[in-house]
């Protein structure tokens, strides 16, 4: 019965989704719009003669797999680092006696504020001083620092929702802080961590300013720097630009599809 009634949502959601997708379809359409036949149909949304020439061009002109590997080497470690350190920090702030807790939290929020364009020069100087110029490690560490505040905020919200009795019981049983964190809280944080993984993937996968400035060797360059050569003053290759940007978006969408499965397990059930 319940299931049937809820299907009414389709009447609202389906048209809304179609409308919502128009710009996205246009992005795909542009990526399939050949240079030699630039005509469009349907008010300019779709190309009149779609083909894959832009994708072919992008693959032909760039070592996409090398760039992909570099992007993964930046994104995966920074996601792991943020998940781990973010959960630990969130746990400490949610359940432990931390001196100057409000100050510490305020300090962490600072990290959310900084726009990349305003700090790239300073971060560059730090990495240069640390000997991390032209290295992926420096980029991973910077992204982790910038992504941690978000992780802390959202994971902490989840940890706060875990009933206090669970925590007290574990303390009484003599579990160490680490055990409480690792065995009880960390697994319960899954829905929040799904969001964190998505966020951090977006952050480290999509940024291009820092790698642009910090990396010197062309074989360390991540995917996000590829679009830069298809765009700009006196340069018109929007088809190729859209093609590479569509390609770049795919892994993030996949991450989303995988992670959103973890947004189903009710916390209440897990605690009981």
């Amino acid at each position: 019965m319940k299931r049937d009634r809820s299907q009414w949502w389709h009447l609202v959601l389906a048209p809304l989704a179609v409308l919502w997708m128009v710009p996205v379809i246009m992005v795909l359409g542009q990526s399939l719009r050949p240079v030699s036949q630039p005509g469009t149909i349907l008010f300019g949304i779709l190309p009149a003669a779609p083909n894959l020439s832009n994708y072919a061009l992008v693959f032909e002109q760039n070592p996409i797999l090398t760039h992909l590997r570099n992007s993964l080497l930046i994104t995966v470690p920074s996601v792991l680092l943020v998940v781990m350190l973010g959960s630990m920090t969130a746990f400490a702030l949610a359940r432990m006696r931390v001196p100057f807790k409000a100050v510490v939290f305020g300090f962490i929020v600072l990290g959310l504020v900084l726009p990349m364009s305003g700090i790239v020069v300073a971060v560059f100087q730090i990495l240069q001083t640390m000997g991390l110029y032209n290295s992926l490690v420096g980029i991973v560490l910077s992204y982790s620092a910038l992504g941690l505040p978000f992780a802390v905020i959202i994971v902490r919200t989840t940890y706060l929702a875990v009933p206090h009795e669970t925590f007290e019981a574990a303390r009484v049983d003599g579990a160490s802080w680490w055990q409480i964190f690792w065995r009880i809280y960390f697994p319960l944080g899954r829905p929040a961590l799904a969001v964190v993984v998505i966020w951090q993937t977006m952050l480290s996968w999509n940024d291009f300013l820092l790698p642009l400035v910090v990396l010197e060797s062309t074989n360390l360059v991540p995917l996000t720097l590829v679009p830069l050569s298809y765009r700009g003053v006196f340069l018109s290759q929007p088809g190729a630009l859209f093609a590479i940007l569509v390609l770049i978006s795919v892994p993030v969408v996949l991450t989303f599809v995988v992670c959103q499965r973890y947004l189903v397990n009710g916390l209440a059930g897990a605690v009981k």
Binding site: L73, P77, L81, S135, L136, V137, V140, S217
Partner: peptide, 16 residues
């Protein structure tokens, strides 16, 4: 974590 991290990123460096 950090060591693993540097190791794998460093590897990319030399590997590349």
């Amino acid at each position: 974590g950090l060591v693993t991290l540097s190791a794998c990123a460093g590897q990319s460096n030399t590997g590349g």
